[in-house]
Design a protein around this nucleic acid. Sequence first.
DNA 1: GGATTGACCGGAA
DNA 2: GTTCCGGCCAATC
Length: 114
Amino acid sequence: METPELPDFELPDFAEAVLRIVDQIPEGMVLAYGDVAELIGQGGPRQVGAVLSRYGSSVTWWRVIRASGDVPEGLEDEALAHWREEGTALVRGALDGRRVDMRLARWDGAGVTA
DNA sequence: GGATTGACCGGAA
DNA sequence: GTTCCGGCCAATC
């Protein structure tokens, strides 16, 4: 399982690592931008976000969100639909619920092939 | 070569 | 609970 499903475009090393991690996130689980960067062992949260912004179309981008548990404006509706379909733990009550419960849905990253 | 930017993060007000 | 500020790190202008 070296190459799951990645685009044929030439990707920078960092971008390749990011997409590889994101592709291995289990269904119903999420990972923060900073967490992905930490699993890779280099770069920072901003860099992960930049990669997803550009190549996110090729991966399950809705499983990578902010540490706050929400996604950027404009993607809320689409992300919410995916979360609802995968059964991701969502926060209910105060907000409209368009937010993931990091406390439960946060993936530990165990068994990741870095 | 330097300056700016960006799907961010954590702590403080 | 929310809003603001500084710091972070690589890609890009």
